[in-house]
């Protein structure tokens, strides 16, 4: 396996220049009304999809940007954004 990631600023680069930042879970929820369960769900829980997931990456040893990509966890290859299912 030899991961490559496409940075919006720097283009397709060696995956080791980047840092994985987790599944895309959306913005931080408002603090009001959070229960331990809902907070834990946001902070710790993952979907662990065997297939395509939207996820965050940081171009750590490059421009420093955080961005999202779609990647197939079964092949470790980046993919186009899948069309939304109707």
């Amino acid at each position: 396996m030899a991961l490559t990631i496409s940075c919006p600023n720097c283009g397709k680069r060696n995956g080791y220049e980047f840092r994985y930042g987790g599944e895309d879970k959306g913005p931080r929820p408002a603090e009001e009304g959070l229960t331990p369960q809902s907070w834990c769900d946001y902070v710790h829980m993952n979907n662990c999809v065997a297939g395509i997931q939207k996820e965050w990456w940081c171009h750590k040893n490059g421009c420093g940007a955080w961005f999202t990509i779609f990647r197939n966890t079964l092949t470790n290859l980046e993919v186009e954004e899948p069309e939304a299912k109707l």
Partner: peptide, 14 residues
């Protein structure tokens, strides 16, 4: 381990 989730069970050159 490479620190990103995947199910490939592939080895790496790195």
């Amino acid at each position: 381990m490479d620190p990103w989730p995947n199910y490939t069970t592939l080895t790496t050159a790195h």
